[in-house]
Design a protein around this nucleic acid. Sequence first.
DNA 1: TATACGTGGAT
DNA 2: TATCCAAGTAT
Length: 367
Amino acid sequence: MNGNIFTKDLLAWYDHHARALPWRLERSPYRTWISEVMAQQTQIDRVIGYFEHWMDQFPNIESVAKAHEEQILKAWEGLGYYSRARNIQKAAAVIIQEYGGDFPQTPEDIRSLPGVGEYTAGAIASIAFRLPVPAIDANVLRVFSRLLDIEISVSDKAAKDEIAKQVCQILPEARPGTFNQALMELGALVCSKRPLCENCPVSDHCVALKNKTVDKRPVLSPKKKSIQIEMATGVLLSAGKVLIQKRKPDDIWPGLWEFPGGGIESGESPEEALVREYMEEVELDIIPHEKIGVIKYSYTRYRVTMHCYLCKLTDTAPVTPVFNEASEGAFVLPDELDGFAFPSGHRRLLESMREDVRYSSLFSFSV
DNA sequence: TATACGTGGAT
DNA sequence: TATCCAAGTAT
C-alpha cells in the first residue's frame, strides 16, 4: 500500500465529509477524553446529547472529581456500561492528585488512567496531543479487514497485530489525530456494515474490493446465544409514595435504582413471583393490585420480558421495608423519581406509567 | 483468552 | 420479531 497517496486521499475526504461533532468544534484533552469514553461500544449519534449535557454539568475535570456518584450515574443514565462513568470519576481524582489537575500527556500515563485502554489512550494522545500513535477501534478493524482482505477473524490477535502494523506504517507524523479520526469516520460513514464502495476515497487500495470479498469482511467470531428471562417487577404505592431501592456493588447496574422484583421461577405466575420477591428483598407483604403492562428490554446477553404491576401493602403488613438485596432504599414521591438513575427497563416502566391515563395523575407533569 | 458489562438503531 | 453490532475495558 502506498501510504502517502492513501493518507492524502483519506485526509482530503475527511476534510470535506467529517461530521461537525460537538467535541470536534472545541478541542481539549478533557473533552476528547469524555467523548471517547462515551463513544465506547455505542454509536456516535447516541452520544451527542449526553456529551453536551455532561459538559454543561461538568465543565472541567475538577467538577467531575467533586461530583457525587449519584450525579455522575444520572448523567450517564441510558448510555449503559456504567463502570465507564465511575472510572471517569476515579480517573478525575487521579488527575487531580497525581498530575496537579493537568491531563497526563504521554501515551503511557494516559493509558494508566482507570477506564482508559489501548484504543482510548491512542485516541486521546493522537487527537488531543498530536502524538503519532494509532487508535484502532472496531471501525479501523473493519476498514483494514477489507483493505487487506483479511481472511481470519478480526478478533484474532494475529489479525489485530497485522492491522496495527499497517496503521503504524502509514500513520502521518503531521496529523496523526486527524488521520485516526478519518479512518474511524470512513468506517462509520462509508466502509460500514453495508459498505458504499462507490463513495470510498481509498477504494483503489482495497484488496477485498478487487477480490470481490467486501461483503465477506470482516470475518467475525461466532457469538454467544442470548438468554431469555421472565421477570416480575412491582411499583409499590403506599401513602402516595413508591418504593425504590439502590442496587448493590458487584452486580449488574451497581449504584442504579430500581423497583423491587426478580426472576419468575418455573411453575410460578408473575404475581406469585412478585409476592415472593418482595418478601425476600424488602420483607414486605404485598398484593399485585393491577397489571401495568409488559416491557421487553435487553442487557448484555439477556433478553428480558418484564411483567409490571402496581402493588399495594396487605392490611396487616408492616410498612417498614428491610433492604436485604439493596444498599439502600426509600419511599419517594412519583415526581422525585426523575432524580434517580434507573436501568433502561425500569426507566421505560416509569415512562409508560406517566403516559398511562390510569397513573398519569400520580405525576405533576403528566404527558 | 474468554467473559461480563448496556443500550437501541438497523435490517 | 429476532439478530446483529457499535469510537472497548477490566478481570
